[in-house]
């Protein structure tokens, strides 16, 4: 249901942001292959369980997010030190947004569509998960429904990713002005795009910003939950996910 990226009056920057997005099918095949490799290893060593599989999937998704960022407009111009600071600050928001946007754009009611293309029934998750995880999934589902009602499209998600990534509040940025300028441009492009596609434009744009703050608090809770599971040794180690977790908690 998304309009063609180059439709009439499409803000140029929105088109640029959209072109940076990875191809969903390629991503799905790449991560599925990687997960299968992991599972063959597990057959020899004994299957560590669903939660570990989800962590490997999250780690692989995080790798694809870093790949998206480092090849993206504006971000690829930044020094590596600034790139690291920005990603350390917002990685969990981008990870949760990746999961949520997949449900809004491609998912079906009552099930969770994984990055590998597989589907898991939400009722199964609720029955297997503990209270904290079940609460996070429930809150995520509510955010999916809000964004679904708004009929968010790929263009808007592409803008939101840049809004999250280019956060001028991150400390000690060498190129603070560039980061601030990109965030302002991304906000302007999103405002222009939402006002072009919806009658009550300020309402939609403001509602999107409210959803962004809900996403921020949800990702902080998810990070804390993951860190607790890590401290009890339940998260596979020596990967990007663990490194990013430590980056914020060290």
């Amino acid at each position: 249901h998304s309009s063609s990226p180059q439709g009439p009056g499409m803000p140029r920057l929105v088109t640029e942001f959209l072109l940076c997005d990875p191809d969903e099918l390629q991503l799905q095949n790449k991560i599925s292959a990687r997960i299968q490799q992991e599972q063959t290893g597990w057959r020899r060593l004994g299957n560590p369980g669903t939660f570990s599989l989800m962590c490997v999937m999250a780690d692989q998704t995080l790798l694809s997010i870093v790949e998206w960022a480092r090849t993206s407009i504006f971000f690829k111009q930044l020094k590596v030190s600034d790139q690291m600071k920005l990603l350390h600050s917002c990685w969990s928001e981008l990870l949760i947004l990746d999961i949520i946007s997949r449900q809004v754009l491609y998912g079906r009611v009552g099930s969770l569509l994984l990055v590998t293309g597989q589907e898991v029934q939400l009722s199964d998750i609720a029955s297997q998960a503990g209270p904290t995880l079940a609460g996070l999934v429930q809150r995520g589902q509510e955010l999916v429904e809000r964004l679904h009602i708004l009929k968010l499209d790929r263009q808007e998600f592409a803008c939101i990713k840049f809004l999250i990534l280019f956060n001028p509040d991150v400390k000690d940025l060498e190129e603070h002005q560039l980061v601030e300028s990109v965030q302002e441009q991304a906000e302007g492009a999103l405002l222009e795009y939402t006002s072009r596609t919806s009658s009550q434009h300020l309402g939609r744009f403001t509602h999107l910003l409210l959803c962004l703050s809900e996403l921020r608090s949800l990702s902080t809770l998810a990070e804390d939950y993951l860190y607790c599971r890590h401290l009890s040794g339940e998260v596979p180690c020596n990967n990007l996910l663990i490194e990013m977790l430590h980056a914020k908690h060290s």
């Binding site: 870093v66 790949e67 480092r70 590596v80 690291m84 990603l87 990007l240 490194e243 990013m244």
Partner: peptide
């Protein structure tokens, strides 16, 4: 011995097509 660069840094510094 220099500190091992982080995985994130290695990813960001990797050649474009890797």
């Amino acid at each position: 011995e220099p500190e091992e660069p982080s995985l994130l840094k290695k990813l960001l510094l990797a050649p474009a097509n890797s």
